[in-house]
Design a protein around this nucleic acid. Structure first.
Lengths: 245, 245
DNA sequence: CTCCTTATGCCAACACCATTGACCTTAGAA
DNA sequence: TTCTAAGGTCAATGGTGTTGGCATAAGGAG
């Protein structure tokens, strides 16, 4: 078994490391976040963290069962950060847009943690508060329960999914990330128009578009779809059925 | 520099390994997919691959410049599978819907591989073909270039993002997955209506809704938004439900 | 103020990982 | 048949997370 981890509350002895730092769960999380921000996204490892905290890497295992648990602890803090200070304005569409952008931003600011966290359901306080807020906005906006649940699901999963996708791009080693971005200019922009007429035509705009997150656009389209459909408009007039299976 | 990689077409000599297997790009990719399925998303490494192929890990570097390039090749194989046999019907919205569902399905069918590749840009043949198809559908549907690029970006990223999110859920260890799903009945369904009135009200429907993928719904909303906006409607001016409660 | 327990930091080691350069064998063109 | 270089192998480098054993000092008990 691993080393014994004492819950932060029950910690009594605080023995300084050889370098003089006094460790704590909070200090470790903060330092990890700093490492992630400063030293790039590959910059978090037990060894580096030990270096930054001036302690042996193995000392971290007195506070977390493993790097995985540390990452989850970081992720847990993110959810709280995202909606801290938010309040409804009464404009349902604008409120949902703001909530989505906030959550997305908080996750993307810490890509590693986002990757491990985004597809999990925690059932913890901050998550519950966010869900209550979202459903509240929809109900207050006059959506019936069935539509509310459907839109809530699409909305929250779209937000988390994009957060994870964009975080995934940010979490790549610098070289791979550069390579991915360069492809739009090195490959897509030089395709023979004979073989790929559509891409060739759109290439210059693609190079500009694809290096940014599509989340704001996608969010707007999803909200447009949800709110316009509520007005009685149907996409069938544009040649399709809005029905879901 | 690394070892020299000869493009698959120009390969002339096929020297069997010590164990008798004859390597090829295709065989390596297939074996990698098998390893991912069997051993989980962390189960793919040069060493394990070498073991499975009965060759030295370093032999792989004659076929790919590094594990990263292999990962991209795996991703491209998935896209290829997804659009194999697809052809346009002329109904733009329906075509996009079909493409989205196909790609989503292909990724979800290989959750471990999806996690590794969903956020990558490969620039390889199958990816190019898919992009050409999507942009082609939009242009043929009459969208101007600016709108085309914006919708294309939102569409493809949303598809990949949901694929990765849903793959992430499927890739969880069975126990963690059960736990995540149970939260909707154990936690959300039992919240005090006083503290969480909106969730309490929606709880029964949520329990049914949240165990399925939201991608089809979200896809429909996004397409509705894109195609309806093209008709001149805008949700911001409409704002009926958001107008005031 | 001293003693004793034990929490906690440190060390060394283990088992992985990707990648590389030198080597050697043999496929297949000439 | 020869002979070059493609392609498989070996050994080594420097990275990772993690663990068992040990030393030490924190802080309660007397």
């Amino acid at each position: 078994m691993a080393k014994t981890v004492v819950p932060e509350q029950r910690r009594r002895r605080r023995r300084p490391t050889r370098g003089g730092t006094v460790l704590s769960e909070q200090l470790i999380i903060d330092t990890a976040l700093r490492l992630l921000r400063e030293h790039g996204s590959t910059g978090l490892s037990a060894r580096r963290l030990g270096l930054a905290l001036d302690c042996d890497p193995s000392a971290l295992y007195r506070y977390f069962h493993g790097m995985d648990e540390l990452t989850l602890a970081i992720g847990d803090a993110l959810i709280g950060q995202a909606l801290d200070g938010w309040s409804a304005t009464g404009d349902g569409r604008a409120d949902l847009r703001a909530i989505g952008l906030r959550i997305h931003a908080a996750y993307v600011a810490h890509p590693q943690a986002a990757l491990l966290t985004a597809s999990r359901v925690t059932g913890r306080a901050h998550e519950l508060a966010a869900d209550e807020a979202i459903i509240g906005v929809l109900r207050a906006g006059g959506f019936p329960l069935t539509a509310t649940v459907r839109i809530y699901h699409a909305f929250i999963d779209q937000t988390l999914a994009f957060a994870a996708l964009d975080a995934g791009a940010l979490a790549l080693p610098r070289s791979a990330r550069r390579a991915d971005e360069d492809i739009w200019e090195s490959t897509y922009a030089r395709l023979p128009a004979g073989d790929y007429p559509r891409i060739a035509e759109a290439a210059p705009r693609l190079a500009h578009e694809m290096v940014r997150s599509a989340y704001p656009s996608a969010l707007d389209m999803l909200l447009d779809g949800a709110f316009l459909a509520a007005l009685g408009a149907t996409a069938s007039s544009a040649g399709a059925t809005g029905e879901r299976q």
